[in-house]
Design a protein around this nucleic acid. Structure first.
Lengths: 405, 405
DNA sequence: ACTTTTTTCTCGACAGTCGAGAAAATAAAT
DNA sequence: ATTTATTTTCTCGACTGTCGAGAAAAAAGT
């Protein structure tokens, strides 16, 4: 069902356009905004005046009058217009970051997590305390935090901001919105971490002016396997999703996954799956809760030295990934794939398996294998995704609020 | 990249809204249009006057003055505003239909196809001739045909209207746009047939006011396996795709598919796959080009009488379908699935396999199995989809043309 | 003939975009 | 020091669109 349009919505859309172009290109002058957005000069004047009045934009001093003529007036986001907190929850630590409306990082700290402790109660308490600490240290009023963006591995219900299933807490759901509900007026966003990576990759490619790009996928390799898909819809808007890739059925081979099912991709390609195969543990053994990276490095070393079973384990992991990706491109479309996460350092051992798995579908035989790139800095990308998503949300909310009155 | 908005676009969007509501609810009076679209009465007046001037809408006589007060003026699409031709290409025949802008069927005929003949040359000739015959019989000017909507099983490139891979022509591509290019000014649409079924199912559910429906999938069972996914995006617009489901990797079991790969879903669940298993033919045997439905009925009869291998063949087909669907819902989301096609009559034999396959993923264990309904009349649905898609396209084009001048 | 009722049509107010040209502000030239 | 050239921002009027309110139209009831 389409919705009706009105002149007010036009202004909203065009305001969003101005803010978005400022996000992409940094502070800009009137003329540049007009150029980038395609809006008439008069329109840009009206919109910037509006946003200035709302204390969202501010005029920046320009460095030197480069050319002659009337000096440009540079507009930029007013940094103090709002703040965001990004929280990355991983199995061994939680990282808290504070950034302002301009997207500059103000503060950050990490808290170690005890992987043995899977109860949500203590976690919730330390979570709330950490947020409190963050605003206090930076002398920011709690109500100026407009967005709290949280990410975790696992399955997320984006609508309700609830963690449906995570490697950290299992099926114990955590309702983050409820945790912060009365005290914080910030909007709570909860995303799968690899979704954010995909978002960041899409933003990067957009900035790099990669044209005729419809979609990008991000694949995260680690203890668990995550997939994020970012696609530009027919309106040119980006929509990202994090399908349940790691626990998609790979093959009914009886390999027990920590989710309780058998034959998930993760049961073959997650760290614990690789370890199990390498050590010839029966495939229905209950998976290890956590595999230290050093342990994986040892297996990789042996594989590189020619140890058959270790080699085979990585090869099987690659095969499962390749088959899963071949299914993904069959069900979506052929798109570039960026592989991130700690597992990338073993990719040489998996590559042939991946290629073999990919080749097993008509889609790949017809359109070729998707281009695969390795992007190890997962943490950087995830934070980049947090910022991109949260700032876009803030822009959107600010404009909507301005329209409401 | 967002695009700029303007007052003219507002009118375009709202005009589209009016036409869409007329499509959904049939001819309507001024008041009803205002009600359904949410537009102000004055706006509806302006838009209908516009469309009347463009000879797109016409006033209909109302039957009896039901209530007192000023009689209503009923607006409806002017049937003669344009025509569309729908062409359904299947392995054994080609069906040509002609309909007017109001969506009423004017003419239809079928031409048998020789499945042995896979050359595209004779087909192209008879295709063009049939279209010619259709407009001639109905006394319609060729240039009044605004859309030719073609469907086939197989893989389609929606952008270029080219058949990339089809069970009928294999990898021989047919460029329909080129066939009709100089003589016909109509826009050529090419869709996968199951995509149209999914579109029709989505339209039906929309009409039946099924709320909070995000998506629906259609699965077509027959000699080949097709899947269509219809989803409502965040703007409420419907976007349908036909992924390469039938030739997605099911399991590396070596079953040869007619696409040349091994282990496709179709190699287990297509008619030829079922036949091969039932007759205990080696799985790497080159598949039969065409399996008559009567042959399948015989196998089904034996299966129902307890013949082990026939039973097993259907069970395996169901398993492959269930596993494929479990992967589909893992990569998209849990959504209702409508099963169509000649294969539905054997669904009782496959059902347990489907359920078993579906259960093998975390997605299903967390959110339950997707609701499955059987809708045998595939041909009706496909034509319904053709009309829905072609008429929407015509509405869109008419409005765009009016805006251009 | 008059009233009631229902629906369509019209008018003025308001919001937004756009193009053109005025105004501003600076560097270079005289 | 003043003038000129240049570049950018700002402002004005025209145009397109939506909306609410009330006028006008057209029938049935009294």
């Amino acid at each position: 069902m389409l919705t009706k349009s009105s002149t007010e919505l036009v202004r909203q859309q065009n305001s969003a356009l101005v803010l978005a172009s400022l996000r992409r290109h940094g502070p800009l002058a009137h003329t540049d905004i007009s150029q980038h957005t395609g809006l008439a000069s008069a329109t840009v004047s009206a919109i910037t005046a509006d946003l200035e009045r709302a204390e969202v934009l501010e005029r920046r001093e320009q460095q030197a009058a480069a050319s002659r003529g009337r000096p440009r007036v540079i507009f930029g986001q007013r940094r103090e217009a709002g703040y965001l907190i990004a929280v990355r929850i991983s199995s061994d630590m939680v990282q808290y970051s504070l950034a302002d409306y301009g997207g500059t990082l103000l503060d950050r700290f990490e808290e170690p997590r005890n992987h043995a402790d899977v109860s949500t109660g203590p976690f919730a308490a330390s979570f709330v305390a950490a947020l409190e600490r963050l605003v206090e240290r930076s002398q920011i009023r709690r109500d100026d935090v407009l967005v709290v963006s949280i990410s975790s591995k696992g399955l997320v219900d984006p609508a309700s901001a609830r963690l449906v299933w995570s490697p950290v807490f299992g099926a114990q759901q955590v309702d983050f919105a409820a945790l912060l509900q009365p005290a914080w007026r910030a909007k709570i966003l909860l995303s799968n971490e690899t979704l954010l990576v995909a978002h960041a990759m899409a933003s990067r490619m957009e900035k790099a002016r990669v044209n005729d790009l419809h979609a990008v996928a991000a694949l995260s390799l680690g203890h668990s396997i995550g997939l994020g898909i970012a696609r530009f819809d027919h309106m040119g808007e980006l929509s990202v999703t994090a399908p349940n890739f790691g626990h998609m059925l790979n093959s009914a081979d009886g390999k027990l996954c920590r989710c309780g099912a058998q034959g998930c991709i993760e049961a073959s390609a997650g760290f614990y799956g690789i370890l199990r195969t390498a050590f010839e543990v029966p495939p229905d053994t209950i998976p290890a809760k956590f595999v230290p990276l050093a342990e994986m490095d040892k297996i990789a070393l042996r594989a590189r030295q020619g140890h058959r079973m270790s080699e085979y384990a990585f090869r099987q992991a690659g095969l499962a990934l390749g088959q899963g990706l071949s299914r993904m491109v069959s069900l979506y479309e052929t798109m570039p794939i960026a592989i991130t996460g700690p597992g990338t350092r073993f990719f040489d051992l998996m590559q042939r398996g991946v290629e073999e798995g990919l080749a097993q579908s008509q889609q790949v035989r017809l359109f070729g294998a998707p281009p695969i790139s390795i992007v190890p800095e997962e943490a950087t990308l995830a934070l980049e995704g947090h910022l991109a998503r949260a700032l876009a949300e803030m822009d959107h909310d600010i404009i909507a609020a301005k329209a409401a009155e």
